[in-house]
C-alpha cells in the first residue's frame, strides 16, 4: 500500500515550504526538527517523525550557510528519510543512513537553484530602469518558486512511488555490518557539527570555555537549559572584566602613569 493522494499533495506542499525555508534561512522550516515532525504528522506517525527529527537535528546542528558557502541540505534529507522510515517501518538509524547521502544530493541542487536565480536578479535590473516597483517585488518573490520546486519535485518523485515492500527490499538487502556500523557512526558524526561551530567562532583565546563546558557536563547531570544559563553568566562576567573593553579614560590614565614610571626609572 502506497500513500494516499491527499498525503502526496500535502507532502509536496510541505516540500515547497521547506524548500523556501531552506533559502530564506529565517523561519527554520527546513531544519530536521521541524521538517521531520511535519512529515510525520502528514503520514500519521508523529512520534517517529519527532524522534527522527531530534536525531537528525543533533547531526545537523552546525550545518550553516556562511556567506555564499552552502552546507549539506537538511530540507530534502529530512523529508525523504522520514517518508522512507515511516512508510517502510524502518529504524531511526536507517533514517540516518538515508538522510546523509540525500543531504549531499540536496546540496548540489541548492547550488544549482541559487545559480538559476541570477536570472531574477537581471530581470530586476531591467525593471529598475523604469522604476517598476511592482515587478521588482515580483522578481524577488518568484525566485522563491525555484527554491520550492528544488525540494518539492524530488519529494513528489519519492512519495509517488514509495511502498513498504519497496523500501524493505531496498534496505533489507543491506548487510547487518553496514547498518550496525552506520548506527555507530551516527553517534560520532554529531561532532562534525560541533567542530563547524567551533571553527566559525574562530576565537582560540576563548576555547577555555569550551573545555569548561565539557568537563562540567562530563561530571554533572545539568540539562541544556542550565548550561545555557551558566554560559550566559560566564559570557556577561567575562565581557565586563575584559580589559579590552575597560573605559578608554582609565586606559589613558594608566598609560600616563606607566610613562611617568618609566621617566622615574630613568631618573633613578
Amino acid at each position: 500500500m502506497g500513500l494516499s493522494i491527499i498525503q502526496i499533495v500535502l507532502l509536496v506542499l510541505f516540500g515547497c515550504v521547506a524548500g523556501m525555508g531552506s533559502v530564506l534561512d529565517s523561519f527554520q522550516t527546513h531544519r530536521p526538527l521541524i521538517a521531520c515532525t511535519v512529515v510525520g504528522l502528514i503520514l500519521g506517525d508523529v512520534q517517529t517523525g519527532v524522534i527522527l527529527g531530534g536525531t537528525l537535528e543533533m547531526i545537523a546542528l552546525g550545518w550553516m550557510n556562511i556567506g555564499a558557502a552552502q552546507s549539506p541540505d537538511s530540507a530534502l534529507a529530512s523529508i525523504i528519510s522520514t517518508i522512507l522510515v515511516i512508510v517502510g517501518k524502518q529504524s531511526i538509524s536507517a533514517g540516518i543512513a538515508i538522510a546523509l547521502p540525500v543531504a549531499v544530493a540536496g546540496q548540489v541542487l541548492t547550488v544549482f537553484a541559487r545559480t538559476v536565480t541570477i536570472f531574477f536578479q537581471h530581470a530586476a535590473d531591467r525593471y529598475a530602469e523604469d522604476a517598476n516597483f511592482r515587478m521588482i517585488d515580483i522578481c524577488h518573490i518568484t525566485a522563491l518558486v525555484v527554491q520550492a520546486l528544488r525540494v518539492a519535485i524530488p519529494t513528489f518523485l519519492v512519495a509517488g512511488v514509495v511502498s513498504p515492500e519497496g523500501v524493505q527490499t531496498l534496505l533489507g538487502s543491506i548487510p547487518e555490518v553496514i547498518t550496525g556500523g552506520l548506527t555507530v557512526a551516527g553517534g560520532m558524526i554529531v561532532v562534525v557539527g560541533y567542530a563547524m561551530v567551533l571553527n566559525m567562532m574562530g576565537a582560540r583565546y576563548l576555547m577555555a570555555f569550551f573545555f569548561l563546558g565539557f568537563v562540567i557536563a562530563a561530571f554533572t547531570d545539568f540539562n541544556l537549559v542550565a548550561f545555557g544559563i551558566m554560559g550566559a553568566v560566564f559570557a556577561i562576567t567575562y565581557v565586563q572584566l575584559d580589559p579590552r573593553f575597560a573605559e578608554v579614560k582609565t586606559a589613558a590614565v594608566c598609560s600616563v602613569d606607566a610613562a611617568d614610571d618609566d621617566l622615574d626609572d630613568e631618573l633613578d
Binding site: 546542528l61 554529531v190 560541533y194 561551530v197 567551533l198 567562532m201 576565537a203 576563548l206 576555547m207 570555555f209 569550551f210 573545555f211 569548561l212 563546558g213 565539557f214 568537563v215 562540567i216 557536563a217 545539568f222 541544556l224 548550561f227 545555557g228 551558566m230 554560559g231 550566559a232 560566564f234 559570557a235 567575562y238 565581557v239
Partner: peptide, 10 residues
C-alpha cells in the same frame, strides 16, 4: 563564550 561553553557540554 556562550556558544563554546554549550558546545563543550554537547
Amino acid at each position: 563564550i556562550l556558544g563554546l561553553f554549550v558546545m563543550g557540554a554537547l
